[in-house]
Nucleic acid binder design. Structure first.
Length: 320
DNA sequence: GTCCGGCCTG
DNA sequence: CAGGCTGGAC
């Protein structure tokens, strides 16, 4: 049974795997790590141009460690959750200084790096180093739970039962386990989706316990309810950061950076002397959002996160 | 409206 | 364990 599922899945993978630039051994372990961090809560299609531009400028940990924070935040563009960019740079500094610019090869060491949690540490172990480890993300939880248990995976963190299941069905062969992780995740992303799974074109339809049971409770309680975006602090924070990126603070910002990531450029030699950090005057900050209570709340939280600096005159800029 | 390949903090 | 944190594609 398990062998049948594996065969069907791998055949599907061979025909349908998306050709992402960090797949199929075409990048370094560091490149895989960057792709995983960028992909946290962000769709792959949006990640690709950012990843390509990023790797061009900062191909390894040492180069990223040497960038200014303002450059890094600017290059992050509109990928969202910009604290990830900060953590990525902290991570780069640790790898450059403590690991001689080579990503460590154990789960525990990876997990200890800034911004790297269980999912990313496992993913790097599997996808970058070819290790045999069960990768657990929301897609894999959903697919395995449906196929093998016949029930929906519910929100929150992975349960012990889900972890045990993932470990139990992971192919014994290391190389097969990597393909397994990738293909189960891919199936969850494009076929076995949360609310409207495409069971009619699923390679595992014949052996899926969930489908056989009539898909009980399809799409129920799959994750925490998503916050609305309109009007939230997240939207306001995004607006503020976007305005600061547009200033070109950090010397490498390009107005197009937010749009298509092609704006990441190395600091031009001519600019090197212009440390002159442009800041956004207070009145222009206030023009960004009508509710000034919420605005100030967001400015304070961005400051606490280390994503902006507040100057004595109340103007804002990216951290230098 | 749906769907996102989580991490960190308290 | 709950809650905060983006933004775009379809």
């Amino acid at each position: 049974m398990k062998e049948l599922i594996e065969n069907e899945l791998f055949a599907w993978w061979n025909r349908n795997a998306r050709d992402l630039p960090w797949r199929f051994g075409r990048t370094t372990p560091w490149g895989v790590l960057i792709s995983e961090v960028m992909s946290q809560q962000t769709q792959m299609s949006r990640v690709v141009p950012y990843w390509l531009a990023w790797m061009e400028v900062w191909p390894d940990a040492a180069s990223l460690a040497g960038a200014s924070t303002a450059e890094v935040i600017t290059a992050w563009g509109r990928l969202g959750y910009p604290r990830r960019a900060l953590r990525l740079q902290e991570c780069a500094r640790v790898v450059a200084q403590q690991y001689d610019n080579e990503l460590p090869r154990t789960y525990d060491e990876l997990l200890a790096l800034p911004g790297i949690g269980d999912y990313t540490a496992s993913a790097v172990m599997s996808f970058a180093f070819g290790g045999r480890i069960a990768v657990i993300d929301t897609n894999i939880r959903r697919v395995l739970s449906r196929v093998f248990l016949g029930v929906e995976s519910h929100g929150g963190s992975a349960t012990r039962q889900e972890r045990e299941l993932a470990a139990r069905v992971l192919p014994k062969d290391a190389k097969a386990s990597v393909t397994w992780n990738q293909s189960v995740m891919e199936l969850g992303a494009v076929v076995c989706t949360a609310k409207n799974p495409l069971c009619e074109q699923c390679p595992l339809a014949d052996s899926c316990t969930f489908l056989a049971a009539g898909r009980p409770g399809l799409g129920e309680q799959r994750t925490r309810p998503r916050q609305r975006f309109q009007g939230t602090n997240r939207q306001v924070r995004g607006m503020i950061l976007n305005a600061l990126r547009g200033l070109g603070a950090g010397g490498s910002a390009d107005e197009a950076a937010g749009k298509r990531a092609k704006g990441i450029t190395k600091k031009a030699p001519a600019d090197a002397g212009h440390a002159a950090a442009t800041s956004l005057p207070r009145d222009q900050v206030e023009a960004l959002w009508g509710d000034h209570v919420q605005l100030d709340l967001c400015i304070a939280s961005l400051d606490e996160d280390g994503l902006i600096e507040i100057l004595p005159d109340g103007s804002l800029r990216l951290p230098q």
